[in-house]
Design a protein around this nucleic acid. Structure first.
Lengths: 229, 229
DNA sequence: CGGAATCTTGATTACCTTCAAACAGGGTGG
DNA sequence: CCACCCTGTTTGAAGGTAATCAAGATTCCG
């Protein structure tokens, strides 16, 4: 039942997500470990939905491998991506009764999941867990505000910020992009064409290399950073 | 010393902020009341700074009357207003060691202030306070995300959202604007001219009335809302 | 009344979007 | 192996929206 609910998506032909109920292999760090909860591991194939907007917020997820995106569909049909989740990131913890965004897998993704109620119960009795929960939410807030400052800037500035953010997160200047141009555009509030044009513009000014369309090597970090605050 | 530090601003001629150390007249609700802390009351005249960006986050403030704005100055000199604070709102609680924005008074404003360390200490011993703290941070996160979705929309949509948000907050369709057009522009990521043009455009289409430049009466809520998601 | 700040309006420009089409890569089936 | 298709990316041309530049109108206050 859980498996069904979680693995259906607009990619009907993908293999069923694999549910393996077992003790978390990654205990001892952050919330998942701290509360000594047993997490179920689950796989989502590229494009499948992890949770939908307005669904009851039943689970909290931790990305083990792969990448996910959190987004909202606006009334005009455009998709606004709020953030990308990478391995180690936790998804859905800030939700109230219901999730406020949809989250799906950008690439094949494995997550650990625990019931949100269990986390909340742990936070009620353990002040240390409560503190981590607050820290997590504060980090999300910080990211959301940074993102908002991004969206009022020029297109080249937005793309430069995005690349530097990614470099920071992956701690590598040789970046294998897991997301499409459309994902980047939706994250930055631009169109796919504009993103593409700015990539080639950065390549032409030797700020980056583009060995393939999905691989970016930062060459002139200073030129990119000069576009930032 | 506190009075000096808190009342200097780029409006050198304003009257000194008035510090009256006394028990909070508004106890019993939210964090300030819950932890039974004695708050100092303090007044800021229009334009004076409540706290600066990167300053150590020493105090938490609760707006008693007036309006404040939280903002960042970007490298190109533009000012990005993150949010406005109205009576009842709490300021600075989500900060880590240092504030991440500047906050100053849009109009003459009275706040209650308590040491952040006192609030954090209370949260460590009282799970109820910790929960309120988390709730507060989650609300700020929700607002930040809503704001981010605002910033990717068209100018008329942004202004309409702003007016409806204000109406919601003040629960009155007859809105006395405490902030300038420049404030609105900086909040919406637009220019003052664009904001002005859209106000008159809304007036010309009978969506709003503009008895004075600082007073807005919502007339056709549907027309405004149709611009939203 | 005079001066400063704020707001409005107009003309022009720049940036990004839209529309359109071609190109590239990757997998499948013949 | 190659033709084909599907998805994703790039590039070009034209158009629209909001910024910029500029000037005038209004409000507020001493």
């Amino acid at each position: 039942m859980l498996t069904q609910a979680k693995t259906q998506s607009r990619h009907p032909a993908h293999p069923a997500a694999h549910l393996a109920t077992k003790a978390s292999p990654l205990s001892g760090q952050m919330l998942f470990g701290a509360v000594s909860l047993v997490g179920a591991q689950m796989s989502y194939s590229k494009g499948s939905e992890i949770h939908g907007e307005d669904e009851p917020a039943e689970y909290v997820y931790k990305i083990i491998s792969g990448v996910a995106r959190s987004y909202r569909i606006m009334s005009d049909g455009r998709r606004q991506i709020e953030r990308f989740y990478f391995p180690g990131d936790i998804v859905g913890l800030e939700a109230g009764a219901a999730y406020t965004t949809s989250v799906d897998a950008v690439a094949d993704t494995v997550v650990l999941l625990v019931r949100k109620s269990a986390v909340m119960a742990a936070a009620s009795s353990d002040i240390q867990v409560a503190r981590q929960l607050l820290q997590y939410t504060a980090n999300e807030l910080s990211h959301a505000r940074t993102h908002a400052t991004l969206l009022v800037r020029s297109a080249p500035e937005r793309v430069a910020c995005f690349l530097l953010e990614l470099e920071q997160h992956l701690s590598a200047s040789d970046i294998e992009l897991p997301m499409t141009r459309q994902d980047i555009a939706d994250y930055l509030g631009l169109t796919i064409e504009t993103v593409s044009r700015i990539f080639t513009q950065f390549r032409d000014t030797a700020a980056i290399e583009l060995p393939t369309s999905r691989r970016v090597v930062l060459r002139n970090r200073k030129a990119l950073a000069s576009l930032n605050s």
